[in-house]
């Protein structure tokens, strides 16, 4: 059976489950929207101040929204036994984990990218900044989902995990946050953001190729 078929079979089922649990999915998105809308209300409404903090706030909220949604990533799969079926199945577990993480990104990361340009209006970001904000989110949020999947897989077998999970993966996510916010900042100020954007792309490629192996190993440990 081809890898593509396995990838899409797992993806299709996870999307079907996600559609049934629509309510759970919107909460990270709501979090992202609320935080980014509240900042301009609480800070001084001066153009310069908001323009200065905009990229940082948008990126931090995106990171925290992703982190919020990661806790439950494999929980349901482990509780209903479908994860152990996948683990003892003959198909490569890393591929299955990649497929599951991709679905997670589709339902949490992708809506953030669509929402971000609308929310960036309140920060007076110029068009060049908004373009790079979306590009960096497009490159950065999959990396965040992937890194988070290792943490979620490692803590999946534990009872109370929310704090531990953030502690584990947050340090790994910091480079993504720094390059993402910095590139947006540079572009908004009219400078060339190519450097940090390339670095984000490199991080994504690295994460796609290595992280699924790590989360597959982590989930095996969690199920032992």
């Amino acid at each position: 059976m081809s890898y593509r078929k396995i990838f899409f079979a797992v993806m299709r089922r996870d999307l079907q489950v996600a559609i049934q649990r629509w309510g759970d999915l919107t909460s990270p998105l709501m979090f992202f929207a609320i935080v980014t809308v509240l900042f301009p209300l609480a800070m001084s409404p001066e153009r310069e101040v908001l323009r200065g903090i905009g990229p940082g706030v948008l990126w931090i909220s995106a990171l925290l929204a992703t982190l919020l949604s990661l806790n439950a990533l494999f929980r349901a799969d482990i509780e209903d036994g479908s994860m152990e079926q996948l683990v003892i199945g003959p198909h490569p577990l890393a591929l299955i984990m990649l497929s599951k993480t991709f679905v997670h990104w589709l339902i949490t990361g992708l809506p953030l990218i669509i929402l971000a340009p609308i929310l960036s209006v309140s920060y007076y970001l110029p068009a060049s900044g908004v373009k790079i904000l979306c590009l960096t989110l497009l490159l950065g949020t999959p990396t965040l989902s992937l890194l988070g999947s290792v943490g979620a897989a490692l803590t999946a077998g534990l009872r109370q995990t929310s704090g531990l999970m953030a502690l584990l993966v947050l340090p790994l996510m910091l480079p993504v946050l720094m390059f993402g916010a910095r590139a947006t900042d540079l572009a908004a100020d009219g400078f060339d953001p190519t450097g940090p954007v390339y670095l984000l792309a490199a991080l994504l490629v690295l994460a796609i190729s290595l992280v699924p192996l790590a989360s597959a190993a982590a989930i095996r440990i969690s199920l032992d």
């Binding site: 299709r12 089922r13 079907q16 489950v17 049934q20 509780e79 209903d80 036994g81 479908s82 152990e84």
Partner: peptide, 22 residues
């Protein structure tokens, strides 16, 4: 196993079709 391995949110048919595909 005693957990069953079926997705509670999906219909029986969808669960079984997934097993078939896999």
């Amino acid at each position: 196993g005693h957990l069953g391995g079926l997705k509670a949110d999906l219909t029986v048919l969808r669960n079984l079709q997934f097993i078939c595909r896999l």
